[in-house]
Design a protein around this nucleic acid. Structure first.
Lengths: 297, 297
DNA sequence: CCAATAGTGTCTATAAGACACTATCTT
DNA sequence: AAGATAGTGTCTTATAGACACTATTGG
């Protein structure tokens, strides 16, 4: 390539003389919502335990938001991508490095970090209960798996000039051994004749650092959206699982009961049956399945 | 809040003494894929014109990628969000500022900009042909609306240890008055027992700057995905339109013919009929509709 | 036998695909 | 009338919801 620019430089010459301008630059963090599913305490000896959807949070040991709980994450370093930073953080916090990982959204509200200009490129990770055992690899920080609940609280709709504004308020609750966090996150859809847009905002917040309530809301909504038309939920399952367990996972993600027959038809192509069965369950044994790695989607 | 950190500082005191570290920080750009739909030249006087899906590109006037075509975009400034930067760029390039806008993905591959460390937070905007007329507000740069085509070229699947790697290669073609750009973008899905991920890469590239072929691919895939379950395509329509025109827009987005009866059932709830009709078309007049701003979704 | 879960069959309601038909305007 | 597009009716197929029924284990 030998084109010359208006200063008569080739591209190579240009790059050699190029110096990054003195523009102010943001810090970019990779923050992760790490989901897993755990079993509740079996309240009766012969009943199946219920599934709980959990995310990992870390208690902040310094300002700002000292003592509040935050998503695991950290600054992206030179010579790594945001995704590599996310993988690095994930390994540091959980010891796990072979997971489903998906970029969610980049948050850049001004003032979202009181220290300085920080954007957050957020990721969602799904790890299964098998891998969860390895969680020992902690640093000094206090970390805990919080049970998550996310429910529609209020729905409002105002008509405005040539359109409407619709606000959905969701209640986010997180709980872990005595710790109870909660927040209300609003999703506002503004629809006018031509334009249209969606915006998240935090209505109230008790115990979460930064704008992490928004990021968590974004993650659970993405997860709920994808559960119905992908095999994403299978990344939360151990190698072998029963169809009832899989159904429980779908139910706890969607916060909604499903019909057994219809569910089994729907996931039939996503799983492969094995010749193994559950044992000593106190009732009829159940066939074990594994994730289908064939065709489809 | 009077909690003290390990140095005995309150949050306020901490923030006052805080100085941004000397870590290297990336530049962050907001790049936009601006879609619109135009009519082709009517090849016969009584036939309906065909619809064409177009995006706006700008020819680079300096290194790097001098002479190549790039997406409109620019660096995010302090005290604005990535979205505000996108809106600002949009107004500068098209004079339009009331559009559908959606964040796509943040690209951060190292070396994606040969000058320095630059991430791109990408957006998709949809503007309708009414607004398009206002395009006069250009700066010196050469800008053009390129007709877009994006087609599956090859599909490959390799089995690997406990999983598979599936590669879909898409051909991206862009054309505008003599200028013909093309690229091949591969989407690779890696599915292993536990992990799983999707990755885009550029296989070949003729005429596009940076990794913008990837960004365009990402945008058209998002648009195709959303067309089928949202009213997103209506943002590409003028105030009044016929159902046939709307169907043509769906068809040009999906690159696939649709059945008229089924299509009309499907969009029935997304539009509201008016009492206006097309005139002097050389054939039966067609009822005009507008976007339905009621309930739904 | 009972409690508990596993697993299947089938009827119905709804949506999508396929295709043919009728309607209305201009030249 | 011919050419072009507008608009509707209806049969078939696929999918999801609802619900009832049978099956298999341990206690």
């Amino acid at each position: 390539m030998d084109m010359l620019d208006r200063d008569g430089l080739t591209e190579l010459e240009f790059l050699e003389q190029y110096r990054a301008g003195d523009f102010e630059r943001p810090s970019v963090a990779a923050d992760m919502v790490i989901f897993t599913v755990t079993d509740s305490e079996a309240d009766s000896y012969r009943k199946l335990p219920e599934k709980e959807l959990r995310i990992l949070l870390i208690r902040r040991g310094g300002h700002p938001f000292l003592g509040k709980w935050a998503l695991p994450g950290g600054f992206v370093r030179p010579n790594e991508t945001t995704e590599q930073a996310a993988v690095r953080e994930l390994r540091e916090e959980t010891g796990v490095d072979d997971v489903y990982l998906e970029q969610l959204y980049t948050f850049s509200d001004i003032g979202r970090d009181p220290r300085t200009w920080v954007m957050s490129c957020s990721y969602m990770a799904l790890i299964n209960s098998d891998q969860l055992e390895l969680k020992a690899g902690d640093d000094a920080a206090e970390a805990a798996w919080f049970k998550l609940s996310y429910r529609l609280l209020r729905e409002r709709k105002e008509l405005v000039e040539d359109g409407y504004v619709k606000t959905l308020e969701f209640e986010l609750k997180l709980s872990s051994e005595g710790e109870e966090l909660s927040a209300v996150v609003a999703r506002t859809v503004t629809a006018r004749a031509t334009s249209s847009g969606t915006d998240y905002s935090i209505v109230s917040n008790d115990g979460l650092a930064f704008d992490h309530a928004k990021i968590i809301a974004c993650a659970i909504e993405r997860l709920r959206g994808k559960v119905n038309y992908t095999d994403i939920a299978l990344h939360l399952m151990p190698k072998l699982f029963t169809l009832t367990e899989l159904q429980q996972v779908y139910e706890v993600i969607m916060d909604k009961e499903l019909l057994k027959a219809a569910f089994r038809r729907k996931v039939a192509d996503l799983v492969t049956e094995t010749d193994h069965y559950t044992e000593n369950a106190g009732h009829r044994p159940s066939r074990l399945y594994r994730r289908n790695l064939e065709d489809l989607r």
